[in-house]
């Protein structure tokens, strides 16, 4: 989460200037063809565990190849790519964000949805607000945190709650899903809407409560090779791995659903 903020802050400062320096340094320092080389993957933060595992698999079958990840908010990553950051692969947590990259002409080919994620109600382990169903979230005095409307999980939450016809007055609109999870995990909030994968990654600090209306706000994850990618061939191979059975297994273990 720390690097994440640093990257976001840097991006904020240099908007309109040089783009992302760190990722640029890494890729240009070790580029090269003939079997070796470094593949740079920009991926949504929720993919951290699954992609790190897939990256190791990828490296294991291709001697000399290294995979570097830049995990962050999809929107931040998209912005870095449209500002010229040298990424090979972009895996986004939202089709809308992906669209900003394809619209800018920075995608090679059409993005493919490789996995999906759904919202669950996250409550602290001891569930102090005694939340059992989505309808409980409108109870006065219950401290609910949601993602801000500007980030994908916020939009998804609005959609799902709308489908459930539940009016929620949150105490905070967090900047991302991890922040929601932090506040629920520490017991500061009684409930929050996060993705199933996040609850899985959080271990036993939080409990996830599924609700049927979440089906109305299933989140598709598209992946694409970046135009003018320094490692175009490796990018395609990595995408194949993610889309293939191995990718499906690893993602499933992390709480994702097959598309």
């Amino acid at each position: 989460m720390r690097t994440w903020i640093a990257i976001a802050a840097a991006a904020l400062l240099v908007t309109g200037a040089a783009g992302c320096g760190e990722a640029g340094d890494g890729a240009s320092g070790s580029g090269g063809g003939d079997g070796g080389g470094t593949l740079t993957v920009f991926a949504a933060a929720s993919l951290t565990e699954a992609f790190t595992s897939l990256g190791a698999t990828f490296e294991g079958t291709r001697p000399g190849v290294r995979v570097r990840f830049n995990f962050g908010a999809s929107s931040t990553l998209a912005q870095q790519i449209t500002q010229g950051a040298p990424a090979d692969v972009f895996a986004s947590a939202s089709p809308a964000t992906m669209k900003t990259v394809t619209d800018a002409g920075d995608a090679a080919g059409r993005p493919q949805v490789f996995t999906r994620n759904r919202l669950v109600i996250a409550v602290p382990k001891d569930n102090p607000g005694r939340v059992a169903a989505v309808g409980d979230l409108s109870r006065p005095g219950l401290k609910v945190v949601l993602c801000a409307a500007q980030v994908p999980c916020g939009a998804a939450a609005a959609k799902a709650l709308g489908a459930a016809k539940v009016e929620v007055e949150p105490v905070s609109r967090e900047k991302d899903v991890k922040a929601v999870l932090t506040k629920v995990g520490l017991g500061e909030a009684d409930a929050g809407l996060v993705y199933r994968t996040d609850v899985k990654a959080a271990g036993d600090r939080v409990t996830g409560i599924e609700f049927p209306q979440a089906a109305q706000a299933i989140n598709d994850y598209p992946i694409v090779a970046v135009a003018r990618a320094p490692q175009g061939a490796l990018a395609k191979e990595f995408i194949q791995l993610v889309l293939g059975p191995q990718g499906r297994t690893v993602l499933g273990r992390a709480g994702f659903e097959a598309p």
């Binding site: 976001a8 949150p170 105490v171 609109r173 967090e174 932090t182």
Partner: peptide, 23 residues
């Protein structure tokens, strides 16, 4: 944002507004 969260008029300061607008 970590300690106080983000809610317009109550805890949303300019830097938080900037960050979210950036999204």
């Amino acid at each position: 944002i970590t300690f106080a969260g983000n809610f317009p008029g109550r805890t949303q300061t300019m830097p938080l507004a900037v960050y979210l607008a950036l999204e």
